[in-house]
């Protein structure tokens, strides 16, 4: 009888920690000494995916840089809920300037660190999807093009949540927002619009681009670590559900992020110098309806009569992602 090496760990590497994993295989988040870059007392809504994503990403970056990190933040939920005078939740040096200029401000910080001979201090710029794909797009593209030494992180919750859930260029088709109401013959956000920012970032040929979700911490932390191993412009697009803006239960935040990945709605991959180098495979395939039904922003698609035609289009988009990135696991992946 052949002996097999023990490689299986109850919750394997899916859970945050797991006492059975070696210390090196555990996440930063499992460490009691993690930075908690964004600390308790912040005013994010219950179940905020962005607050979680920011802590995940920045704590990982803090570990990788041994605490030599500066964060630049665009205006938006993350900024507002973290720093209302007189209280800040940030435990790391942090600067907020404007909504649309975080990438450029980050460039300035990086330039200052270099000129001061403090190259070990690394810079992270961060924004929501509005601050990234819309108003901050110009400065972001400039930062990419110059290959400035900045990791820019977009926490994508698919709309302008801070101002009351309006549409952004990251809002998915059919989703109801305050400016794309679920009325008329084409309810919600129109099809055929929006920006695929990770691919735009790749088109700049920058060293590293990756997508991730708050549902897969190991993947997210590994990507932050990978990103920090490069100098130059890097981009991380993190999918962060918004219970308030999506009309979802606050306890479903991670569940929704997981479903977004498992349905193919949000492809999780990474790219170096413009070429896709890795894809996080779907583990438990699910139809898009599993994901859509949990969100009131899609409520108009269900019930009677509902819009099965629209659901089918969304399923087709997910299927296209699955085909494009090869998201389904094959025998060799097992």
């Amino acid at each position: 009888m052949s002996e097999t090496r023990v490689h299986f760990y109850q919750v394997g590497s899916f859970a945050v920690g797991n006492r059975l994993l070696s210390a090196g295989e555990r996440t930063v988040q499992s460490d009691r000494r993690r930075t908690n870059s964004i600390d308790s007392g912040h005013r994010a809504c219950q179940g905020c995916g962005e607050a979680l994503g920011a802590r995940y990403a920045l704590d990982a970056a803090m570990r990788v840089t041994s605490g030599q990190l500066v964060a630049v933040n665009a205006t938006g939920c993350l900024e507002v809920f973290s720093t209302p005078f007189p209280e800040t939740s940030w435990q790391i040096p942090w600067l907020h300037s404007l909504f649309g200029n975080a990438p450029a401000v980050a460039t300035g910080v990086a330039a200052a660190m270099r000129v001061k001979g403090r190259d070990q201090v690394r810079v992270v710029g961060q924004a929501g999807d509005g601050g990234t794909v819309d108003i901050g797009f110009g400065t972001l593209s400039g930062m990419f093009e110059r290959n400035d030494d900045v990791l820019f992180i977009c926490y994508d919750n698919e709309g302008y949540m801070n101002t009351g859930v309006q549409r952004s260029a990251a809002t998915p088709p059919a989703a109801r927002t305050a400016t794309t109401d679920a009325v008329g013959p084409e309810p919600g956000n129109p099809f055929g619009q929006g920006k695929d920012l990770p691919r735009i970032a790749m088109a700049h040929g920058i060293p590293y681009v990756a997508t991730a979700t708050v549902a897969d911490l190991h993947d997210l932390e590994r990507k932050v670590e990978r990103a920090m191993s490069f100098h130059g412009a890097r981009y991380l697009h993190v999918f962060v559900p918004c219970p308030l803006g999506w009309g979802a239960a606050s306890n479903d935040t991670i569940h929704l992020a997981r479903l977004a990945k498992e349905t193919g709605i949000f492809p999780v991959y990474e790219a170096e110098y413009g070429e896709v180098t890795g894809v996080t495979k779907i583990r438990r395939p699910a139809p898009v309806t599993d994901y859509l039904r949990l969100q009131r922003r899609y409520a108009h698609l269900f019930g009677h009569p509902g819009r099965p035609d629209v659901v089918a289009r969304l399923q087709a988009m997910a299927d296209a992602n699955i085909a494009r990135y090869g998201l389904l696991a094959t025998e060799e992946d097992e």
């Binding site: 630049v72 200029n101 450029a104 401000v105 460039t107 300035g108 200052a112 400065t139």
Partner: peptide
């Protein structure tokens, strides 16, 4: 961007 870079640099 020019003023924004200046802001970042000055703050650093």
């Amino acid at each position: 961007a020019a003023m924004s870079v200046s802001i970042g640099a000055s703050a650093a």
